[in-house]
């Protein structure tokens, strides 16, 4: 397989994986909201989140494989899972490696969900928040295409999407906390 083909595949699948990861995150963050619509039930959104995450992993796998198979630069198989073992662009590749590690852990924990304690699953799943900025930094640090306007525009759109979803999530958490804080003040006020 020609090095150029591998390189183009790496770049393309990397970008698509980043977009899909963004979509996965936004869908996942959105499942916590308590607002339900008949036309868009939340169980469907959760289902979509799971399916998109799987597609993300597929593109990520291809991205990782082609990047290692491309001998134009020396990354090495170990760098897939072990950070800082690549001889090429050690730091930026390491970021990608960390992303892969995190997502692998999330994937495995979800497959074993019924067999591990609920808290463990949730803890690992929270790690997925880490994968996204790491992936984004990896893209900017390594990405050949990132200085193009369209690519930068896409990245900014991703940032807005995730930040927006997070803001809504935080607002929801605050509202929930307010609902239970009212109860705490009731407890304090009632002494027999």
């Amino acid at each position: 397989m020609s090095s150029s083909l591998l390189w183009y595949t790496t770049r393309a699948t990397g970008l698509v994986a980043l977009l899909l990861l963004t979509l996965t995150l936004v869908l996942g963050i959105g499942t916590a909201n308590r607002f339900s619509m008949r036309s868009w039930p939340r169980f469907a959104q959760q289902d979509l989140h799971k399916r998109v995450s799987l597609i993300t992993l597929v593109f990520l796998a291809i991205h990782v494989l082609t990047s290692v198979m491309d001998t134009y630069v020396n990354i090495g198989w170990a760098a897939i899972l072990l950070p800082f073992t690549s001889r090429y662009d050690s730091f930026w590749v390491a970021l990608g490696t960390v992303g892969v590690d995190v997502l692998a852990a999330v994937a495995v924990s979800s497959m074993l969900r019924n067999r591990i304690p609920a808290r463990l699953w949730r803890g690992v799943h929270w790690l997925s928040y880490l994968s996204w900025p790491v992936a984004l930094a990896h893209a900017f640090g390594m990405g050949t295409d990132m200085n193009q306007a369209w690519a930068t525009g896409l990245a900014i759109a991703c940032i807005f999407a995730v930040v927006g979803a997070c803001v809504l999530r935080v607002r929801l958490a605050v509202a929930e906390r307010r609902r239970t804080t009212n109860l705490t003040s009731l407890r304090a006020a009632s002494q027999v």
Binding site: T180, L183, L186, R187, A188, A189, S190, Q191, V192
Partner: peptide
């Protein structure tokens, strides 16, 4: 009074 007390004593 009892109801208020008991409401404050739940596990949450």
């Amino acid at each position: 009074r009892i109801a208020a007390y008991m409401a404050s004593q739940g596990a949450g």
